[in-house]
């Protein structure tokens, strides 16, 4: 029996206005992502994968079409409601970690919890647990400048999962790391998916990174193409 659908995308298009020209980045796209899937979104630069990731993560609105995550239709939410929705349901991992340089690792991880009603003590416990999951409990007091790239990305992953989101959205999470460290991070994401049941959508250029995913999706010119077409090419 297949997993229930978590993300449902129907007939989604996204257009940007560049001067007088309208550029269609996504065209009539349909996609379903099951609960507990680990999806790798691949494709050349400009294919629209980051745009799609932003739409799934509620960072942007589609020009047309419908996006549902769980029972919520997010394409019609206002910016304010979308921000609240993101805080409850999405954890973000960015290529360059996007940690706050003036905050320690634990304070960085705590940020999403400041949007909840948890007490300070509960927040501390959750932060400690998240840092333990990513193997950085001993680096809690360190600032980002005192961490290696791999460690910084682990902190970013801890921040993404500390509020127990429905969905982890990762934009080139290993794009700034060496092979060995990238494998560690991807192993960690895979463990989060397999052992903790986290649904992950990851954009990557790296075929090796994509191998960690349970499903690979390929995009070109704003549309999803099937794997068979790529292999044939």
């Amino acid at each position: 029996m297949s997993a229930p659908t978590l993300v449902s995308i129907r007939n989604v298009s996204k257009r940007y206005q560049r001067g007088k020209q309208s550029v269609e980045v996504l065209q009539n796209l349909d996609l379903d992502i099951g609960q507990g899937e680990f999806i790798a979104l691949m494709g050349p630069s400009g294919s629209g994968k980051t745009t799609l990731l932003n739409l799934i993560g509620g960072l942007d609105h589609p020009s047309t079409g419908e996006i549902r995550v769980g029972s919520e239709r997010i394409d019609s939410l206002s910016d304010g409601k979308l921000a609240k929705w993101r805080a409850r349901h999405v954890g973000f991992v960015f290529q360059f970690y996007n940690l706050m340089p003036m905050l320690s690792a634990e304070r960085n991880v705590e940020l999403p919890l400041l949007l909840t009603s948890l007490s300070s003590a509960q927040r501390k416990r959750n932060v400690a647990a998240a840092l333990t999951v990513v193997g950085l409990a001993d680096r809690a007091r360190h600032k980002p400048s005192e961490l290696s790239g791999g460690q910084a990305q682990r902190v970013a992953i801890a921040r993404a999962l500390v509020a127990d989101p429905t969905l982890l959205v990762c934009d080139e999470p290993t794009g700034d790391l060496d092979r060995h460290t990238a494998d560690e991070i991807l192993g960690l994401l895979q463990a989060l998916n397999r052992e903790h049941g986290k649904t992950i959508v990851m954009v990557t250029h790296d075929p090796k990174a994509a191998e960690y995913a349970s499903r690979q999706l390929h995009m070109d010119k704003g549309a999803l193409i099937d794997a068979g077409a790529i292999n044939a090419a």
């Binding site: 993560g57 960072l59 910016d79 304010g80 921000a83 609240k84 993101r86 805080a87 409850r88 973000f92 960015f94 996007n98 706050m100 340089p101 940020l111 999403p112 949007l115 921040r159």
Partner: peptide
Amino acid sequence: GLEIATLRAIGFSS
């Protein structure tokens, strides 16, 4: 800019 954008992505309000 990046810090502010990251905070807003996480869910901090405008």
